[in-house]
Design a binder for these strands. Sequence first.
DNA 1: AACATTATTGGCAGTAGCTGCCAATAAAAC
DNA 2: GTTTTATTGGCAGCTACTGCCAATAATGTT
Lengths: 190, 190
Amino acid sequence: MSDEQRQRQRLEISRHAVRLFADQGVSATSGEQIARAAGVSERTLWRHFATKESCVEPLLAKMVDAFQAVLRAWPAELDLAEHLRAAYTPLLDSSSGAELKALLAVVRMTHDEQALRAAYLMLQERSELTFAEVLAERTSLPADSFELRVRAAAINAALKVATDHLVHADTADASVEHRNLVADAISLVT
Amino acid sequence: MSDEQRQRQRLEISRHAVRLFADQGVSATSGEQIARAAGVSERTLWRHFATKESCVEPLLAKMVDAFQAVLRAWPAELDLAEHLRAAYTPLLDSSSGAELKALLAVVRMTHDEQALRAAYLMLQERSELTFAEVLAERTSLPADSFELRVRAAAINAALKVATDHLVHADTADASVEHRNLVADAISLVT
DNA sequence: AACATTATTGGCAGTAGCTGCCAATAAAAC
DNA sequence: GTTTTATTGGCAGCTACTGCCAATAATGTT
């Protein structure tokens, strides 16, 4: 229960941080500002996040979770790309349109602010690990095998490129576009 | 010419930084120490590197360069994995055994020190871009195409996983082992 | 309901990574 | 040999972050 509270608070802080980052830029936003906006002392802010850039993590993690859920629903006998095209509508489902816009805004910001990009890549690598776990359940591969890790990394990389690509030319319906890009990318590496 | 001098100095600083990092750990090493060890003022250190972690970049870039050279030598009609198995001995050629050990030590350190891992991932992403350029020359794919970027990302991810895997169980002849791991990994995603 | 215990928070002081600014020195151009 | 230009160093300063202790809130016990 206590842990759940903590996650909620982290997400709350994350929202404020992302809004400030989007409004003023990352480097122009101080930890003090984030703390004040979130109604918390600076000291506890740093207890929740190691760096100010990592404040975006809880929000981004929602995207990762959504994708992970799709992976979990993947029947082992089907082609992954096809499954994605059929079942991948998680962002529209699990979050409001505003939230999706915020997510894309963060990813877009990572292209200008180096430190934020680094935080983004760190999160991606964590997601790679969870993808590997899911893959281990859905396939016959051993959980700690080299092949599994490579495949998880490839899927992760495909997801990253697709997301970056979408962010640069964002269309009317980003969610549908993202689904297709991800499916295309993954069909190339599997 | 001036730029070449600059690169040399960066590499020189990088060596000292890596040695200090390996000896005392990253967080226990201060920018002042790095500067003093490299015989340069702290101010100019920060002119050369944006963060102390990024001091490892010039050294790591040598590994990337080596791999890139192998990619460049890839005949378009051959299977990439086979080509790698035949032609991939760059680390032994281009650098001394001590330098290879230093490289692996850095990669190993990235697993304990978060900030260093972030710097490592940033470098990897830069290498992804250069891989894409080389691929554009060696294949018939358009230089800025989505498919090309996905393939470059997959190769990059495979290289990363293979390197990480090697670092955890380093054998007597790391170079040969690395060649095989990279070739295996890439054959899975191409 | 009152009290003891434990976890979470805040304030304060301090360290260190980094930046801007100007003077000093070195390199290059002429 | 002098003017110009690029590189370096020193200093001051900001802020991201940490350790430490007190305060408050949450939780459990009787």
